[in-house]
Amino acid sequence: MQSMTVTSPAETMQLGQQLAKLVQPGDLILLDGDLGAGKTTFTKGLAAGLGIDRNVKSPTFTLIREYQQGRLPLYHMDVYRLEDGGAEDLGLEEYFDGDGVSVVEWSQFIADILPSDYLRIGLSRSGTDDDQRTITLTPKGARYQQLVAQLEG
């Protein structure tokens, strides 16, 4: 587990851009944090790093937004509305096994269908500064341990 502190939304996006250089088809990134913690801001950085120039918005009401025009497709999922179940019927596994990068916000609501390997990124407010966040990277599996090591290097 690796933790860091960022002090602005721009720094959160920059971390996403750095990660975008390293991701491969089929990678799964879980974003956990309270409302307003920076999950979509991080995803905007990831999208920019992949070369996606469309505006990235939280897919709270659509559940999944697909962005195809970058180095890799980006599948941005917000599964908050699946708190009471129903994830099994959405075919999310097809995205997880697909040719792009899957980013899942509120992943705890689909924990029972997640693959065993992924990178969990926790974002939480820290300190008294409204823009300060603690970002924690928790890799599960050798692929994601390597990814975090490359990110640190």
Score class of each variant (00 low, 15 high):
139 P>H: 03
10 A>N: 09
144 Y>D: 10
49 G>F: 05
23 V>K: 04
140 K>S: 13
140 K>F: 15
5 T>V: 15
34 D>S: 10
37 A>G: 03
94 E>F: 12
82 L>I: 02
90 L>A: 11
141 G>T: 05
104 V>L: 03
41 T>S: 07
117 D>Y: 06
28 L>A: 08
110 I>P: 05
137 L>T: 10
3 S>M: 04
6 V>F: 12
82 L>R: 00
116 S>W: 02
144 Y>S: 01
68 Q>F: 13
110 I>F: 05
117 D>C: 05
38 G>R: 01
112 D>L: 11
74 L>V: 05
104 V>Q: 00
62 T>I: 15
94 E>G: 02
87 A>F: 05
80 Y>M: 00
4 M>V: 07
33 G>T: 06
107 S>P: 15
45 G>H: 10
138 T>E: 15
148 V>Q: 01
133 R>E: 13
8 S>W: 08
122 G>H: 05
34 D>Q: 04
9 P>H: 13
18 Q>W: 14
127 G>V: 07
78 D>T: 08
153 G>M: 08
64 I>Q: 09
72 L>N: 13
64 I>F: 14
62 T>L: 12
75 Y>T: 01
49 G>Y: 12
7 T>L: 06
23 V>P: 03
145 Q>C: 07
27 D>Y: 13
113 I>Q: 07
1 M>H: 14
143 R>K: 11
25 P>W: 15
16 G>P: 10
7 T>G: 15
143 R>S: 12
45 G>F: 08
64 I>R: 10
122 G>W: 02
79 V>C: 06
15 L>S: 08
120 R>T: 05
42 F>M: 06
8 S>A: 11
93 E>P: 04
6 V>H: 06
11 E>M: 13
124 S>F: 06
8 S>M: 13
94 E>V: 02
27 D>I: 01
96 F>D: 11
74 L>Y: 09
93 E>Q: 10
135 I>Y: 03
39 K>S: 12
126 S>H: 08
41 T>R: 05
80 Y>C: 00
17 Q>G: 14
114 L>R: 11
89 D>W: 07
80 Y>D: 04
52 I>M: 13
101 V>K: 05
124 S>G: 10
133 R>F: 11
17 Q>R: 15
52 I>V: 15
140 K>L: 06
10 A>F: 09
70 G>H: 09
146 Q>P: 03
53 D>C: 12
122 G>T: 09
97 D>C: 05
86 G>Q: 01
80 Y>K: 02
3 S>P: 02
67 Y>F: 08
107 S>R: 00
7 T>W: 13
47 A>W: 12
19 L>E: 08
87 A>P: 01
130 D>C: 02
97 D>M: 12
111 A>N: 15
